[in-house]
Simulated assay, not measured.
Amino acid sequence: MSNTEFHPCPICSIPTRYFARYTRAVCDNCYSKACDVQGRKLSFFNTSMSGGFEAIVTETKEKYESHICYIAGVKCWAEEARFGGIVIEMMIDGDLPNR
């Protein structure tokens, strides 16, 4: 494992792939634990092959109208990744890193 390719997940500290664009990206395990403020599990999707962002409450399939989610009580932000897929990053004092 190279220091330039991995960094500790900001939530659980497990080594996860490092992307310079997403410096606070969480690991896959933490990603799967994303929930809303009420503790309901969330699922995230691209809306089409060309991208877009959609979030739902996993159990009810109800549309979730925010990018804010929580992992282990830590406030995070889910968004469409630059080249497709969804990335979740930890927020610090309500802010994300500059893009």
Results as ranks from 00 to 15, higher is better:
M1E: 07
N3M: 03
N3I: 08
T4M: 07
F6K: 04
F6S: 08
F6W: 10
P8H: 01
P10N: 01
P10Q: 00
I11A: 06
I14L: 13
P15I: 03
R21N: 04
R21M: 07
Y22C: 11
R24P: 06
A25D: 06
V26R: 00
V26W: 03
V26L: 09
C27D: 01
N29Y: 12
C30G: 08
Y31G: 00
S32L: 13
S32M: 14
K33L: 15
A34L: 04
A34P: 01
A34K: 01
C35R: 03
D36C: 09
G39W: 02
R40H: 13
L42F: 04
L42R: 06
F44V: 05
F45P: 03
F45H: 11
N46Q: 15
N46I: 03
T47Y: 01
S50E: 13
G51A: 10
G51M: 10
F53L: 05
E54I: 08
E54W: 09
E54Y: 05
I56D: 02
V57Q: 05
T58D: 12
E59A: 15
E59D: 13
T60C: 08
T60H: 06
T60N: 04
K61S: 14
E62T: 06
K63T: 07
H67K: 12
I68T: 14
I68Y: 07
Y70K: 01
Y70T: 02
Y70M: 02
Y70R: 00
A72L: 05
G73T: 08
V74C: 11
K75Q: 14
K75M: 14
C76H: 02
C76W: 00
A78C: 11
A78V: 02
E80G: 13
E80D: 12
A81R: 07
I86S: 10
I86E: 06
I86G: 11
V87L: 10
I88H: 08
E89T: 07
E89I: 14
M90H: 01
M90T: 09
M91D: 02
I92T: 14
I92L: 12
D95K: 15
L96V: 15
P97K: 00
P97Y: 02
N98T: 11
R99H: 08
